[in-house]
């Protein structure tokens, strides 16, 4: 039996380690992994990392995250996206290596966290857009792949 950290959901060509949450809010494709009871790290999932193209620039604009409000700006292929915070909290660490070289996200999306955050409202993890259950996650990603196939 694999431990939670080793379990990976595969949907199409994309992989989703099941040791974390995935945020489907505005199809933001961010992951959030709890480090302890109140601290989590946040990054970009494999789907966004592949469909956006090579990330070239990243900036984190605020030290406090408010759920749903943009906390970072990222550019790939001359396209600027804004990342909405999946939870509220205070940034306790910024991954300087990823900020200075955001293409690391494309190379290893699940090892390239952007910020570590102390959650101010842990109950937000129970929100409808925070997916942890493999079946709900699969259903969302399948819908996303369907959209891709229609293009």
């Amino acid at each position: 039996m694999k431990s939670e950290a080793e379990q990976v959901l595969r949907v199409g060509d994309y992989e989703f380690p099941l040791d974390r949450y995935y945020c489907s809010y505005r199809n933001s494709h961010l992951w959030l992994r709890m480090l302890d009871d109140t601290t989590a790290e946040i990054g970009v999932d494999a789907f966004l990392s592949e469909t956006a193209g090579r990330f070239s620039y990243l900036s984190v604009g605020s030290e406090r995250l408010e759920r749903g409000r943009n906390f970072a700006t990222i550019e790939s292929a001359k396209f600027v996206s804004r990342l909405p915070a999946p939870v509220s909290g205070e940034v306790v660490e910024l991954n300087a290596e990823v900020v200075s070289n955001p293409s690391r996200i494309n190379e290893a999306p699940y090892h390239s966290w952007i910020v570590r955050v102390r959650l101010s409202s842990p109950e937000e993890l129970e929100g409808e857009h925070m997916l942890r259950d493999a079946e709900r996650l699969r259903a969302w990603i399948e819908r996303e792949i369907e959209r891709l196939e229609e293009e």
Partner: peptide, 17 residues
């Protein structure tokens, strides 16, 4: 609008379209 049928998922599709 991002929820429009014309809004692509893939960035390269946006430019092509």
């Amino acid at each position: 609008p991002r929820d429009s049928e014309l809004a692509p998922v893939r960035t390269s599709t946006l430019y092509r379209r």
